[in-house]
Amino acid sequence: MIGNAVTSQAADLDDQRLAMAWIYGDVVHHDTERLKETDPFGLTERFRAAAPLVAWVMVRAIELLNYVRALQECGALELQPEVFDQEVVLQATLWEHTGRVYSAPVGTPAPVDALTPIGEGWTPLSGNAVLRQAEE
């Protein structure tokens, strides 16, 4: 629960609703209604509610994997062995994409898609632009 003594505004939500707002609103950027409902609490409280939930889900996922492995070992499941060896974790956290960048006056029609030739009015910027996105 939170309250503002100056404005007399009060709000209360449980951690599950705050956590879901962080996952689906702040991370996925899909559920704006959840964000509106939790706005009085702010990003920090949404994150604090979500962190233990995400950790709990991770532990349960590991437990489930170990259960599936045990069922496979005793012959109760007949899964292909490669499903246990396939990589599912990214090693790199830095991606680079090299591309060409163009500019045009406002109102110049953009190409329909990335394969359509650039039309008149578009000027390439010198050199290649490198977009780097780092995950930390």
Rank of each mutant, 00 (worst) to 15 (best):
R69L: 14
V130M: 07
E78P: 01
D85C: 08
D113Q: 05
V83Q: 05
I2L: 14
R132M: 08
I62M: 13
R60N: 10
P105W: 08
H97L: 05
E136Y: 10
L64C: 06
F47I: 03
Q9Y: 14
I2F: 00
A129F: 11
P111N: 08
D26S: 06
V57T: 12
L94F: 10
G99F: 14
D85W: 02
Q72F: 06
A104Y: 13
N66E: 13
D14R: 07
I23T: 04
D31G: 02
H97S: 05
P117C: 02
L13C: 05
R46D: 09
T7M: 01
W122D: 02
A70Q: 13
I23K: 10
N4L: 01
D39V: 01
T38K: 00
P117T: 03
I118V: 14
V89W: 10
L53M: 15
L53A: 03
N4Y: 04
P117F: 15
T7I: 05
W122F: 08
E45Q: 05
L35T: 01
A49L: 03
R100I: 00
T38H: 08
D31A: 10
L64I: 07
E136D: 09
E45N: 04
A129T: 07
E33Y: 14
V57I: 12
A50N: 10
P105F: 08
L65K: 14
G127V: 04
M20V: 00
I23S: 06
A10F: 15
M1F: 07
V54M: 12
R60C: 09
T7P: 12
P40D: 13
V106T: 12
